[in-house]
């Protein structure tokens, strides 16, 4: 499977205290890639790097088959971008903003844009500065989709929107994707939102990509185990042990948080003389939090 976005060993320093470190990112063509991470983890910086707004200190970036930042204008012909904060000129009316935007994209579909205006109940004569947050969110996704892009880059597109506006924005995006098989790169810290729509997930923390895997593997593979007679681990385990918490005085046994869990791995505990008492599913948010905790503990140890 080829990739729509590829980062290879990308480094970028934003300040003395924060940098993107050796970032390798692979977004498969046609995927809905959820880019998760807490605030300040480097999601928006990564998006600015991939849209050519920032120049990496080292490493290479390819987006839609073009080198970035070298070939940024050609890459942007095929990319619909919704930034974290509204970027269109506030003194424009909606119809003026659409006409301005359309002039830069030969692939602009004005019929589709008109349909979406009706569907979103946006008044073309309304001034952008007077739009509500929800209306602005709808307008930005409308502008990005009317370009008919092969890649959509969405930086927290539903942040601060009410549930109705959020559903409208996500539905429009999903309809477009099902029709065109476009690739979507969507960043958010709203874990549950991405859980429903994405088929790949990447997790950023402190400028590093701490995990990148299919959503199914992420959801099913992270478990909380109750382990009796927990051994000291020497050698390799068949799963990735993210975290190990001692007996908490309430529930017997140690608590292990593991990644890459499969049913047949139960046998491992027999071989080390331990008892597996329980296997508990974690939802994406719990898995996400455990993954971040484990990454941070690992960093602290180093």
């Amino acid at each position: 499977m080829s990739n729509e976005i590829e980062f290879r060993d990308v480094n970028y320093r934003t300040s003395k205290t924060f940098s993107i470190k050796s970032l390798d990112l692979n977004v498969p063509k046609g995927s809905l890639y959820g880019f998760l991470g807490p605030n300040g983890s480097g999601k928006s910086t990564t998006i600015k790097l991939l849209t050519g707004m920032l120049r990496p200190k080292s490493g290479s970036i390819r987006v839609c088959g073009f080198d970035v930042p070298g070939d940024t204008p050609r890459m942007l012909q095929f990319t619909g971008y919704v930034p974290e904060r509204p970027h269109v000129f506030p003194s424009f009316r909606i119809d003026e903003a659409l006409a301005f935007h359309a002039a830069f994209y030969p692939s602009w579909d004005s019929d589709w844009a008109d349909d979406m205006l009706d569907k979103f109940r946006l008044d073309p004569k309304q001034k952008i500065a007077a739009l509500s947050k929800g209306e602005t969110g709808k307008l930005l996704i409308l502008m990005a989709l009317s370009q008919r892009p092969q890649l959509l880059v969405l930086d927290e597109p539903t942040d601060g929107l009410d549930p109705v506006a959020r559903r409208d924005v996500l539905t429009a995006m999903l309809d477009y994707v099902s029709e065109t098989q476009a690739t979507v790169f969507i960043s958010s810290h709203l874990v549950h939102e991405l859980e429903r729509i994405c088929d790949w997930v990447g997790v950023m923390d402190d400028g590093c990509l701490v995990a990148e895997l299919p959503m199914q593997a992420f959801k099913n593979g992270i478990k909380r185990l109750r382990v009796g007679d927990a051994p000291n681990i020497e050698g390799e385990t068949p799963f990735v042990l993210l975290n190990r918490k001692p007996h908490d005085g309430v529930v017997p046994g140690e608590t292990w948080i593991v990644r890459g869990w499969q049913k047949d791995m139960r046998n491992y505990f027999d071989t080390v003389g331990a008892t597996l008492k329980d296997v508990i599913d974690l939802d994406l948010e719990e898995g996400f939090v455990e993954l971040l905790n484990s990454a941070r503990e690992e960093t602290d140890r180093v």
């Binding site: 849209t51 707004m53 904060r85 970027h87 000129f89």
Partner: peptide
């Protein structure tokens, strides 16, 4: 004026140099 207000993000996201 408008580009400065939006920190040039819109201009930089357009497909021209």
């Amino acid at each position: 004026q408008w580009d400065q207000q939006g920190k040039q993000i819109y201009a930089m996201s357009l497909p021209i140099h």
